[in-house]
Amino acid sequence: MNWNFLLGPLVGAIIGYITNGIAIKMLFRPLNPITIGGYTLPFTPGVIPKEKKRLAKSIGRVVSRELLNEEVFRKALLKPEIYERLEEKVDYYIDTYQANDKKLGEIGNEFLGKERAIFLLCEAEENATSLIYTKVVNMEIGKIIVDKLIGTLKGGALSHLLGPMSFLVKDQMLDSLGDKIEPAISQMIVDEAEGIIRQAVEEESNNLKETSVGDWVTKLDPYRDIIKKVVIKSYEGLVRNGLSTALEKLDLAQMIEERIMAFDTLEMENLILEIMNKELNRLVWLGALLGGIMGCVMSFF
């Protein structure tokens, strides 16, 4: 047997195996630059430690632009499966809370604390009273009442009240009467309406506090399909109109870059080796194979 013929491929395979193994190691090692007399040795530190910041920035930019961009998020968030899950959640919460006997007031006290709940309820009552009162005053109800009353009297109601004597009352007299009583009615509304509205609001507020969650949710049950449509429409609008702003504020590229930079280089090496161990080993053995092939070729010369 010609051992010289085998020696070339064997040496080539060993050299290929070793060089590829060293090349892979040099991706991470050495972890820190090696200096001799103020001179930094070439290829130190390894490629990834040396270019970590640039790599982190590039990876963050590529991932945010190509892999996890706005369009990808939008498609994922607007899949039919998401809509189905939202409808299921609406059904789940309505069905679950219909059996809840807790009073709304009790739940408010649990979540907010009694003092805070009372404060917020009083504030809500005051705001509701103020809003309704302002609307009532601005509606000029006194004028509406008087105009309606005078119109009704002119339309024939006066003859039923006064009988044959109604011919004595002219339209001008009714208009003059309306002009006189309208300010009084309007002022009475300004003076009295706020107290009446406040009392009504407080009564409704107390009734609401004593209503159980189940009773309140049961009232919503007939509108279950409408609630689903509102929830889905709101969710869809949020995704379509708010996703761009959310991603801009999130700054995914910067987040990825910071996360990569936070990785310890040794920890990153272990992670990559754990993920790509088989592939990297194949590269090492591929180097041995190519070295062996080159050795065979050289043996013929």
Rank of each mutant, 00 (worst) to 15 (best):
R29L: 04
K209W: 01
L68W: 06
E88V: 06
I34G: 03
N100Y: 00
E106Q: 05
F263D: 11
G178S: 02
I145P: 08
E274T: 13
G8E: 09
I196G: 04
Y92L: 03
E248Y: 11
E248I: 11
E257Y: 14
I197E: 01
W3R: 08
Q187C: 10
V201H: 02
T19N: 04
N241M: 09
V239L: 13
G295M: 10
L158T: 07
G155E: 01
I132R: 01
P33Y: 09
G60M: 04
V90E: 00
K229I: 13
K102A: 02
R240V: 15
G46Y: 02
K209P: 00
M165T: 04
S244A: 08
L286K: 09
L67N: 03
G155I: 06
E125W: 05
P49N: 03
L104P: 00
Y235F: 08
K50S: 12
G155Y: 07
L250G: 06
E236S: 12
K135W: 09
R85Y: 07
E81S: 14
M268L: 15
E66C: 07
W3S: 11
M268S: 05
I196A: 11
W3Y: 10
D191M: 15
D191N: 15
I14K: 05
E279P: 15
N100M: 00
S166L: 04
A253L: 01
I185F: 10
C122V: 11
Y133I: 06
A13R: 12
D101S: 04
Y39E: 05
K148L: 14
R61S: 14
L177P: 05
G37T: 12
F43Y: 08
I145G: 11
Y97R: 10
I59E: 08
S299R: 07
S130R: 06
G16I: 14
I256P: 11
A76Y: 09
N69G: 11
E87M: 13
D264Y: 13
M268I: 12
E71A: 13
M255V: 15
L168M: 14
